[in-house]
């Protein structure tokens, strides 16, 4: 498959995608970098001036930054933890034969199709609302004081909402992987006297490694930029208790109109994502090659 003809053709065929993605990466990113060195506020057009690293300095030293950074990482880690462990458990359960497998599977997948704004609003109002939410009704009927989730545990609540959206994804991928597990291998292990736990640790888990990698990779990409759920539920608050990096940048640039500061924040978010990306790429590079 490799004549000069086909190689030339291949270069031609791949170039639109490469050029577009390159432009997409380089033009706005270049502008962001440029803006990040300007004193630039949308409320004061025409007043742009060179700021050097001031924007970075102010962005990083503002108290909100540290909490945003921590919140971003907690959000990613929290959701990954819940979805990976929950996903494995659910996949193991759904892999067993039982009546109505098809229907249960359809129910489990459903949250994946729900757009973030809807899931956030529904959880916020119908479930976590301290007066009329279902959780409030339940605690009242048990004689407890209703808990105001979004005021007292805003980040944990958002983690719960996001995890609900992503649990189906993890479950589905892991379930598919489980179903491709070699049954004869399992039977051989059983003949060899391996009990359920041993079979799980030595056969099932290694078999799932690849899919767990995929789950972590794909989810991290999306989780690093969770935005709508925060915008709709807590608006980053109370204070900055549920502000993550994307939300902080959004607030700075489009709510405070501080383009320079927002851009500096954007670049910092890109750098953070790249650190995570390098880490992840190493991991999948190893796991996806085979």
């Amino acid at each position: 498959m490799a004549t000069e003809h086909s190689r030339t053709a291949a270069r031609l065929m791949v170039s639109p995608a490469v050029i577009l993605l390159f432009l997409w990466m380089i033009v706005p990113l270049g502008m962001t970098i440029y803006f990040s060195f300007l004193r630039y506020n949308l409320l004061m057009p025409g007043m742009e001036s060179w700021a050097g690293f001031d924007n970075y300095y102010y962005f990083i030293t503002q108290p909100a930054f540290k909490s945003a950074l921590v919140n971003t990482l907690l959000l990613v880690a929290g959701v990954l933890l819940i979805t990976v462990f929950g996903g494995i458990a659910l996949a193991l359960l759904l892999d067993q034969p039982f009546r109505g497998q098809g229907i249960v599977r359809v129910m489990v997948i459903a949250p994946f199709f729900v757009m973030p704004t809807v899931s956030a609003l529904v959880w916020k109002n119908m479930f976590m609302n301290p007066v009329n939410g279902i959780f409030a009704h339940i605690s009242k009927s048990l004689g407890f004081q209703p808990f105001d989730f979004l005021s007292h545990a805003p980040l944990a609540s958002i983690i719960l909402i996001v995890a609900w959206s992503w649990l189906p994804f993890a479950t589905l991928i892991l379930l598919t992987a489980l179903q491709s597990l070699d049954r004869e291998q399992m039977e051989a292990a059983e003949m060899d006297g391996a009990n359920w736990l041993n079979r799980f640790i030595y056969l099932t888990l290694p078999h799932l490694t690849r899919s767990i990698t995929v789950v972590i990779l794909i989810q991290t990409i999306f989780l690093l930029s969770v935005f709508a759920e925060i915008l709709v539920t807590t608006n980053g608050g109370p204070g900055t208790a549920s502000t993550n990096l994307p939300f902080l940048v959004y607030a700075q640039s489009l709510l405070n109109f501080d383009v320079g500061g927002g851009s500096a924040g954007g670049i910092i978010a890109v750098i953070l994502a790249n650190i995570v990306a390098v880490f992840l790429m190493r991991m999948i590079g190893k796991n996806l090659e085979s």
Binding site: L29, T32, S253, V259, G262, G266, A269, V270
Partner: peptide
């Protein structure tokens, strides 16, 4: 490498380019 690079553009958080995109 090309594939990895393409996937890595997905890693760029949207907020990183929010401001210029908005202005553009």
């Amino acid at each position: 490498d090309l594939l990895m690079w393409m996937l890595s553009t997905k890693m760029m958080p949207a907020v990183g380019v929010l401001v210029p995109m908005y202005l553009l």
